[in-house]
């Protein structure tokens, strides 16, 4: 089959082949909330005066805290490292595409950067029904307030706070850098940053809860290189992280659930995914 033939087949399924048929009756409405939101999201980039000022005010304290945390964590990590044999990834895993499609029980893998030229991936097994293929992982939205998710990602940008609108900055290039950025972004820390050997790699572990008033549309947390891979939190939401050094690549594993409202069976399925998760370089 030639590329031209494929192109024509794709053209045939264009849901709107002729845009001129669309009837547009409204002119753009320049409402205040939308204007504010757009201005924030489009204009509020690193390097702006506002952001530079925020960074200047925060910089020294955050930097000292970060250095202390990493130094201590590194020391503890060296002393406590675990050389447990690494599990093999589940065979015949299907690649997650982030297409928001339902996932049948089975083995899946997430390409951590969406780049076919690199091979780092996280493979895990989904045991139950109701999971959805989302960018960088899988998510289950149940009845009512239920929401559980597992993401295996690299991170491009982070926001310095999830509790006030800020602009994104480049994520650190090491697991320690990334761990520190997330650990100081306003999450209520439930289990402090600690060194681990997990999923076959060395790194750091953290559990945090999204405080009331934090998260939401104007206060995102991070974006990744996978197309549309990004994250806004909601309160209340519990997030467990592993920041791993996978042969020089910082990979973040993020398991999240709603404390008190995610059903036990969903949490069990999430735990089973973590139990089978293997990160391969």
């Amino acid at each position: 089959m030639t590329h031209d033939q494929i192109r024509e087949m794709v053209r045939r399924v264009n849901p709107i082949p002729d845009p001129s048929m669309l009837e547009i009756v409204d002119v753009p409405v320049l409402t205040t909330p939308l204007e504010r939101r757009t201005e924030k999201q489009i204009d509020d980039k690193p390097g702006t005066e506002v952001q530079a000022d925020r960074n200047r005010r925060r910089g020294p304290l955050v930097g000292i805290a970060a250095a202390a945390v990493i130094l201590i964590a590194g020391l503890v990590f060296f002393l406590t490292r675990d050389d447990t044999p690494v599990a093999e990834p589940a065979p015949n895993a299907t690649e997650l595409t982030g297409g928001f499609q339902p996932l049948a029980p089975g083995a899946y893998y997430a390409d951590t950067d969406g780049n076919e030229e690199t091979t780092t991936r996280g493979t895990f097994v989904i045991e139950g029904d109701g999971w959805t293929d989302v960018p960088s992982g899988a998510l289950k939205e149940g009845v009512g307030e239920d929401l559980v998710a597992l993401l295996v990602v690299e991170v491009d940008e982070v926001w310095s706070s999830i509790c006030e609108p800020t602009a994104p900055v480049a994520a650190g290039t090491t697991a320690a850098d990334l761990a520190n950025q997330i650990a100081t972004n306003g999450l209520t820390v439930r289990e402090g940053l600690a060194p681990v050997n997990a999923f076959g790699h060395n790194g750091y572990h953290l559990v945090g809860e999204v405080p009331a008033g934090c998260g939401g549309e104007s206060k995102p947390a991070w974006t990744g290189p996978v197309f549309d891979s990004n994250r806004w939190y909601d309160s209340p939401e519990m997030v467990e992280y592993w920041f791993l050094d996978v042969e020089g690549t910082a990979v973040m594993i993020e398991a999240s659930w709603l404390p008190g409202s995610s059903p036990e069976e969903d949490l069990t399925e999430l735990q089973a995914m973590l139990d089978t998760l293997v990160i391969t370089p």
Binding site: P15, I16, Q41, G99, F100, P102, T132, V134, L139, E141, E145, L147, A149, E217, P220, T223, D228, N230, R231, W232, Y233, D234
Partner: peptide
């Protein structure tokens, strides 16, 4: 993309499931 960032938010996923990507 800014809208998509909210896909994890409760109550929005269903709409995304049925429409996001390339569905009519």
């Amino acid at each position: 993309s800014n809208q998509t960032r909210a896909f994890y938010r409760r109550g929005r996923l269903h709409a995304k499931l049925t429409n996001l990507g390339m569905a009519p």
